[in-house]
Design a binder for these strands. Structure first.
Ligand SMILES: [Mn+2]
Ligand SMILES: [Mn+2]
Ligand SMILES: [Zn+2]
Ligand SMILES: [Zn+2]
Lengths: 157, 157
DNA sequence: TCGCTTTTTAGAATTATTCAAAAAACCCGC
DNA sequence: GCGGGTTTTTTGAATAATTCTAAAAAGCGA
């Protein structure tokens, strides 16, 4: 397994992605969002944006970061995710179970949630396009969330 | 404000609803769900079902019960809501913010969530009817949740 | 490099929820 | 009505997710 940035693990790095095209893209996005490109933010953005759309919880992301020897704290993961949401780089998804999910796909789309494996996934076609939603008078719509909850046939008794 | 059941507040009760038609309906529902009609369950079901569809959190319901001198603990509110969900009397709704909402409307329908006032409400027409949802192979759909998040024009800066 | 600002961190605090064990209430046959 | 087995409720502790606080570290521009 490759390792990512951080002073103490420098020796083990196969190659440093932090000069490559992904890092450049990330720096641009952070700059556009007026967030300093700190090492932690770049590391987390790297995890989030390296491989297409992702759906993660704060804990999951922190565990990944630790597995790759990225030196950052859980508090930073929470802070950073909150900032990324605030600046539109990612978005939150509400699911049952009191854990917030973060989604790198900020476009309009809906989700499957696999209750057995606790995994969130995009639904290929954007169902919300079929919805005729109107805001009640005096209100604006700030978001529409559609979750289709699933059980796989085994888990389903 | 009228007061509901409980030994110590008996003197203050204007009239005891626990013999009336609501109580009869509730007893029937509890019986159908194979839940003993304990005083606490009847009290909570009274709050939930007395006035058409409701959307509440456990804390809200507990505060209401206390305001009406119903003698019951927060743990009982949580336990009872869980039991009511398990037996289909009410259902959960997932909303942003790590708090579970409970809905007495168990039919298929969607929700507005007022982020300013933190209130959940039914959307009159069932939008999900317009959705063409398919389960991925090997899965079954166990529920579809649609939340339309709102900000009122004042709250919206 | 210096000085100022922003970010990160560890750990405590908070909030929502669940759990566990004891107490209370309920039910049923006598 | 009364005891005995069962269910329910309660209290208080435990857990999990998240936020807060204050101090340390890092980043940035001159
Ligand atoms: Mn999380
Ligand atoms: Mn609640
Ligand atoms: Zn998504
Ligand atoms: Zn509803």
């Amino acid at each position: 397994m490759e390792t990512f940035g951080g002073e103490k693990s420098r020796a083990r790095i196969a190659y440093d992605w932090r000069g490559g095209p992904l890092a450049r893209m990330i720096r641009q996005r952070l700059q556009a969002a007026r967030l300093r490109p700190s090492r932690q933010r770049i590391s987390l953005a790297g995890l989030l944006f390296v491989a297409g759309d992702r759906h993660v919880t704060a804990e999951q992301l922190h565990r990944e970061a630790q597995a790759l020897d990225m030196p950052l704290s859980l508090a930073t993961v929470y802070n950073t995710l909150r900032q990324f949401v605030a600046s539109g780089l990612i978005r939150e998804v509400a699911v049952f179970g009191s854990t917030v999910w973060y989604d790198t796909n900020t476009g309009s789309h809906c989700h499957y949630f696999d209750e057995g494996r606790q995994r969130l996934e995009d639904i290929p076609s954007d169902l919300t396009r079929d919805l005729k939603i109107a805001a009640p008078p005096g209100y604006r719509i700030v978001g529409v969330d559609v979750i289709v909850r699933l059980r796989d046939d085994e888990t389903l008794q």
